[in-house]
């Protein structure tokens, strides 16, 4: 079996894997980072969104072997120790989650959205940018509110952290 090595949440991780291992399987099964979820087979629900080299991708539609040498950030690596990332805090504050299953993907997508579109996000932009993330519980109302608030609060973060 081939070996893959990547940096996950700041730690160098390596494993021998079946080539068909998806990034999400590598994270969940090899590394036991079970915060990244699988909610569909067709790359649409977004429960599996993580960052590769700072950009949001669907970990269910990426081979682990394709991530050789990459930097991967998952929901488990987003907080700064015990200090929640402003986007995590905003989801809690604004009740942007119910069952919690889509939440890691939503938060990772939202952080990426701020990277691309800045800290002042209007409702229309947020809704359009959530194209690739499904939630069945919240009706999106509070997710939209949370992302707008989280984006604003991210402006006071140190630049290096915000970029992650």
């Amino acid at each position: 079996m081939p070996t893959v090595t990547m940096n996950v949440n700041g730690r160098q991780r390596s494993a021998d894997i079946d080539p068909r291992t998806l990034l999400v399987q590598f994270l969940r099964e090899n590394l036991r980072l079970t915060g990244t979820h699988v909610g569909c087979d067709t790359s649409q629900c977004g429960a599996c969104v993580v960052h590769i080299d700072g950009e949001a991708v669907k970990a269910c539609t990426t081979l682990a072997l394709s991530c050789e040498g990459s930097n991967v950030l998952t929901i488990e690596g987003l907080a700064n120790g015990n200090e929640l990332h402003p986007m995590q805090e905003a989801f809690r504050e604004h009740h942007g989650l119910q069952c919690g299953f889509c939440t890691p993907g939503m938060i990772m997508t939202a952080v990426d959205l701020v990277r691309r579109k800045g800290n002042n996000l209007d409702e229309k932009t947020i809704r359009e940018e959530l194209e690739g993330n499904l939630c069945r519980c919240t009706g999106y109302h509070n997710i939209v509110k949370a992302i707008a608030a989280g984006a604003r609060n991210m402006s006071s973060m140190p630049q290096s952290k915000a970029a992650e």
């Binding site: 969104v49 590769i52 669907k58 539609t61 997508t109 959205l113 691309r116 194209e131 690739g132």
Partner: peptide
């Protein structure tokens, strides 16, 4: 095309 995450790949 697709969605933001898909466009990154």
């Amino acid at each position: 095309i697709g969605d933001p995450a898909v466009r990154h790949r």
